[in-house]
Amino acid sequence: MKSKKLSIPYIAWMVVFTMIPIVMIGLTAFRDKAGGFSLEPFTKAWDYRFVFLKSLWIALLSTVICLILAYPLAYLLTKMKKSTQKTVQLLIMVPMWMNFLLRIYAWKILLQKNGPLDMALSLLGIHGSYIGNTAAVVVGMVYEYLPFMVLPIFTVMSKIDGGLIEAAQDLGSNNLAVFKKVIFPLSIPGVISGITMVFVPSASTFLVAEHLGGKDDVMIGDVIDKIFLNDQNTGSAISLILMVFILIFLILMNLFGDEEALA
């Protein structure tokens, strides 16, 4: 009974700031301008399907690259001395203390015409601007979200019982087999929460694309932002579809791991 009472403020919080807004978005999505029931917002949302797919594609690409970069790093981290571990962890975290937008501006300068990258490549005789394309957006996303992938994987990996690894070695496993049979399976929960923490925000953000992308890199978040000003119904419908897609993604992730992703 006591624990129930403790949860009341949180339940109230959830109702006011999560449940009610979601219900309101749901209601708005199924209405037309006059306020009657209508599926028109969804037919209008259909016009933006390619933007939608592109956003999901960029998010997926960023997540996969983050995973490829983060997994070995997290593994190496667990092998380090405690003191080096602390330092490296700190180095991974420090960029997050800086303003998000400021870091994007820095990337802008790095990639633009006559920027450092262009100057370096000019020495080899290649000129150009490396900003304003999808690759630049993905690079920006990976940079922004890498820590969110490294840290959960590292946390889970460092909690693996050393006894299990020794037992595997005693039973004749070589390093590869230890990794395949013990470390990798036990690190899956970390991988799943890492993927969730990278994919979900990168599917809905648009700041990175706005600054690093070109004329064709419009993200669904941008469409929602622009459309909401004069057509809240279609805006709500697109948000709702995005939520459903993310939910499906999380359920799929759940099939691989335990209850980790949804929690």
Binding site: D47, Y48, F50, V51, K215, V218, V223, K226, I227, L229, N230, D231
Partner: peptide, 14 residues
Amino acid sequence: VYAYMQEQFLKVKT
């Protein structure tokens, strides 16, 4: 007309 203009512009962009 203005609402239509905003909608159409977004379509050009996307």
